[in-house]
Structures are given as C-alpha cells and as structure tokens.
Simulated assay, not measured.
Amino acid sequence: MTQAKKGDKVQVNYKGYLDDGTIFDSSEGKKPLDVVLGSGTVIPGFDAALVGMEVGSRKTVKIPMDDAYGKHNAELVMQVPKDQIPPDLKPEIGQKLQVGGAAGELMAVEVIDLTDDFIVLDANPPLSGKDLTFDLELVAIA
C-alpha cells in the first residue's frame, strides 16, 4: 500500500484533545481535513504524524508543545490602560478581540484580566504551552 509522504495531498479525520481529556477540535460531522504534507499549513507534529500512514490506517499521537503551538510567551501578554480602549467596548474575561500591532497588522488577543486601570490581553495562540493528543485516520492520498 502507498504511504503518505511529503508533498502528498491527504485527507484526514482527526480528534484533538488536551491531557485532561478536553476535546479542542474534531473533524467529526465535517468533511475530512485536506493537508499538503510539508506545506506548513498544520502544526509540525500533526504533519509529521501523517507521514508514513496508509489509507485507512489510524493512530493516536501525542504532540509536545514545541511541535504544536510552542511555549506560552510572556512577552505576548500586555497591559493596556483602560483609557486607551474605545469607550463603547465593554471587555470581559475570555472575550476574543482583534487589535492593531506595532506594524499595523491585526493580532487576535484574548482578555485574560481586568483591573481598575488596565485590560490585560494575551496574544499567544490559545493552545500555546500545551501538549496535544490527536486521534488520526488517513482517509485519502491524492
């Protein structure tokens, strides 16, 4: 049987979960995920786990944070004075926002704390600092 290799377009069903069993993403009830192996469109550990799989094969793989979204970077946590946010914005902990970065790019952030004077924003990917586990099923190699 043919094994998936770098450059192949593959379709994969997956379920991703954290060490505590919380499911953070799944293809269940959706079309399989299309991935071109080696293209950088998915996290490195997910990509590497698909290489060598055959159509119809399944496996479970644990991906350490360094091969997923990396370590949590304290430099991406910022305190913004409340007087610098739009007056119509009523931030709440857990709220997702987009803010302008230093070079004018948009950054996705999450409100992680509120004080009397500041709103604390985290621009790290939500899964940074976490080891991830995936159940994988290779559906097709194109």
Rank of each mutant, 00 (worst) to 15 (best):
P87M: 05
P87L: 06
D88Q: 14
D88T: 04
L89D: 09
L89H: 11
L89V: 13
K90Y: 04
K90Q: 14
P91F: 00
E92R: 11
I93N: 10
I93Y: 08
I93H: 10
G94E: 07
Q95D: 11
K96T: 13
Q98I: 00
G100R: 14
G101L: 02
A103I: 00
G104A: 01
G104Q: 05
G104L: 01
G104N: 04
E105T: 04
E105K: 07
E105G: 07
L106Y: 03
M107L: 15
A108D: 15
V109W: 04
V109R: 09
V109M: 10
V109Y: 05
E110H: 08
E110Y: 05
E110G: 10
V111H: 13
V111I: 07
V111Y: 07
V111C: 13
I112L: 09
I112M: 11
I112K: 15
I112V: 15
I112N: 12
L114V: 03
T115A: 06
D116W: 00
D116G: 07
D117Q: 13
F118R: 15
F118Q: 15
I119P: 15
V120W: 05
L121M: 11
L121T: 08
D122S: 12
A123M: 14
A123Q: 14
A123N: 13
A123V: 05
N124D: 05
N124M: 04
N124A: 01
P125D: 13
P126G: 08
L127K: 14
L127T: 07
S128K: 05
G129A: 03
K130P: 07
L132G: 05
